[in-house]
Design a protein around this nucleic acid. Structure first.
Lengths: 253, 253
DNA sequence: CGTTCTTTTGATGATGCTCAACTGGGGTGG
DNA sequence: CCACCCCAGTTGAGCATCATCAAAAGAACG
């Protein structure tokens, strides 16, 4: 629990700096909040960012009802966010990766509306929202980009609504894979080969399907030679066909 | 089509003012963008609001791909927004009513991501977004409340994801009715008796169900004496039970 | 190497979809 | 005014998709 962080202690002289979040040094600054900011303004943003915080696998970043103080920029790793209904069942509302912002749903009521949990050992930058709001008055570019990020979250959720309301199982799953691929591509990773950070169960939950359905779909895609699958390692062998399935324009079924 | 607005012409001296959108005079200002603004700041917001625009039933406010210039505050009436997939099928992503803001999804790419269509004769206030952004620098309260509204849209969509991903048909429909009721209540209308502004088909589309399912659910609720239904007129006879069904905590099935 | 958790695969079944026919209200024109 | 049509909605019958239940196989971990 509260063990004395052995690794960090050993390297204190170096890590004191490394622990200070620095946007300009961060590989995600082209995607994240500081996108498009001048060097000087990035410094001002750096100045308000609290600390870099490690969240271990399955660690909770925040829970429903927690008071809202910070937004979180993911520096490293993956998260899931989920709603909980009255019966305690969860519905995963998103998987987030480095460069994405967590906590925007909490602004409306000053309380978090979902749980955020790390899918693997991760790191986030704490952004105190009141201080960010002060900065908005001085850096219009920052404000504008923040609005873009919130807006992006809205459109992302709308496509999930399309997925859940309109698509059949196969199409949902293909859309899910294609979406992951494009996000890895935007981060400079291979869009065809990647590790799933989430379990089959989590995928199913997100897509409104059961774990068994996901498993069957994986087997089917494997048999059709659209995918190579090895546990959580995915290789998309025919991305074009997967895209067509996701779009619903696929002919050969 | 372009008939000379007989009614308004007769009253021109009065209606010249009425046509200028005025937040302080608008019955929605406690819910809408100007919420919590001082009299003076409300005037500044008034000053940038373009015009009050009438949108007839089935009229299009904007379409996917339209360049983004304005947000729209609904002054009167109801709208639906929907995504369109590659096969031309639509997925309704929301029903909006007076006091709600349309177009926030367009900020991210400067293009609208959905179509917005009036469900009945309606009126909106055009809010030029660049000018609104200028105002943000001068009225922090306005900025903060704008963030709350965007955030609210995010949480709204998350609950729809919960609905579509996790609930059975009966629960979805009950949740839909309960949601409508609470929004009418917030506007000072009866939360138990109201007109549906949308067709059965539109409800089904929104909830990821077919028109037949909606019809059957209505009949069932009617038979169980939870609802009185007359075409589009709804009376909730047992709101508590409907809430319980929506929450999934209902015992007697 | 046994224990536990995750995933796969199979068999069965229910929910909600599809297709089809029918009803009823509102508008139009004879 | 009535006949007719048209559209939205209702109701019924059969069926497909995906969920549920069950069991076995495979990975992970001490």
């Amino acid at each position: 629990m509260s063990q004395p962080l052995p690794f960090q202690d050993k390297h204190q002289p170096i890590n004191v700096n490394a622990l200070r979040a620095s946007c300009s040094a961060c590989s995600m600054h082209q995607l994240c909040l500081p996108m498009g900011l001048a060097e000087e303004d990035m410094g001002r943003l750096d100045a308000i960012i609290g600390r870099r915080r490690k969240v271990p696998r399955d660690g909770v970043l925040y829970r429903v009802g927690d008071p809202f103080t910070n937004l979180y920029a993911i520096r490293l790793g993956h998260f899931k966010t989920y709603q909980i209904n009255y019966n305690g069942e969860q519905q995963i509302t998103g998987f987030q990766m480095a460069g994405e912002l967590l906590g925007m749903d909490a602004i409306s009521t000053d309380r978090h509306h979902c749980d955020a949990v790390a899918l693997e050992d991760s790191e986030v930058c704490e952004i105190p929202f009141p201080r960010l709001e002060e900065l908005f008055g001085h850096i219009p570019t920052l404000l504008h980009h923040f609005h873009r990020m919130m807006s992006q979250e809205i459109t992302r959720e709308q496509s999930v609504m399309l997925l859940l309301g309109n698509m059949r199982a196969e199409q949902r799953f293909a859309a899910f894979l294609v979406n992951l691929a494009s996000r890895y591509a935007a981060r400079g990773y291979s869009p065809t080969t990647f590790q799933l950070r989430m379990s089959r169960e989590e995928i199913g939950n997100y897509l409104g399907l059961t774990i068994e359905s996901i498993s069957r779909l994986l087997s089917r895609f494997k048999k059709q030679e659209l995918l190579r699958v090895n546990n959580r390692e995915i290789e998309m062998l025919k991305p074009e066909i997967l895209k067509a399935i996701a779009a619903g324009t696929d002919q050969c079924k």
